[in-house]
């Protein structure tokens, strides 16, 4: 575990210096600024749009994180960590931390910037919906990182995100967005499913 944490700290520092992860993060901030800049209407419905944005943003972020190191540098890190497992787990930790940060920002923004308040239950609904989208995006990003070329990664990522985001019945992301539109429903199952997907994609990442 200490190795995983050390890998996470190293990867976070390296990713921060590479600044590639800043682009998707900035994109999410831009969406939030536009979305909650005018009069978005009462919560939680407007969060549907920020959840929808967070899904591809998290996938992009996870893909960038998984490919921050060049392959030779990565081999040195894998040897130092005693195998690919701690490196993959460390990558997951950094991605989840980024998801959490963007989730909190997305939920807090309208509460601060618009006159609409929200009950604790609604805030929880918003948090879980963003988390479900963020973690699922992380899973998609990691899976795309396994593809040999960035063009394939991009194509597959875009298709998966487009297809799965707009199915209201489909957990985790589709169900999360429809729950925000109706303002009801439990999102524990979608979040658990999203977490399972992210962990599963991390296990795939070990094989690279």
């Amino acid at each position: 575990m200490t190795r995983t944490l050390a890998v996470a700290r190293y990867l976070a520092a390296d990713a921060w210096r590479s600044q590639r992860v800043l682009i998707p993060a900035a994109l999410q901030l831009a969406v939030l600024a536009v979305l909650f800049g005018g009069d978005p209407g009462a919560l939680p419905a407007p969060w549907g749009a920020s959840v929808l944005a967070l899904y591809p943003v998290a996938a992009w972020l996870a893909l960038s994180l998984a490919q921050t190191e060049d392959p030779i540098q990565r081999s040195v890190t894998v040897v130092a960590a005693g195998g690919p497992g701690p490196v993959a787990a460390g990558t997951l930790l950094v991605a989840v931390a980024a998801d959490l940060l963007l989730t909190v920002l997305s939920v807090a923004w309208p509460l601060v910037a618009t006159p609409y308040g929200a009950s604790p239950a609604t805030v929880l609904l918003g948090l879980l919906a963003h988390l479900a989208a963020g973690l699922t995006g992380t899973a998609v990003g990691f899976a795309c990182a396994l593809l040999p070329r960035i063009g394939w990664s991009l194509a597959v990522g875009v298709i998966v995100v487009l297809v799965t985001a707009v199915q209201p019945w489909l957990p985790p992301v589709g169900a999360a967005i429809s729950a925000l539109e109706t303002g009801s429903g439990s999102l524990l199952v979608p979040v658990a499913l999203a977490l399972a997907l992210a962990v599963g994609a991390t296990a795939l990442l070990r094989r690279t």
């Binding site: 890998v7 190293y10 520092a13 390296d14 030779i72 040195v76 890190t77 040897v79 130092a80 960590a81």
Partner: peptide, 26 residues
């Protein structure tokens, strides 16, 4: 482990990189 062709373009300062790698090894 020293790979063939250690990358000349690391983003971190040399000492910071060494600190991180040592921490990963414990």
């Amino acid at each position: 482990y020293l790979p063939d062709r250690f990358p000349a373009r690391l983003r971190m300062p040399a000492e910071v990189y060494l600190r991180h790698l040592a921490a990963i090894r414990g």
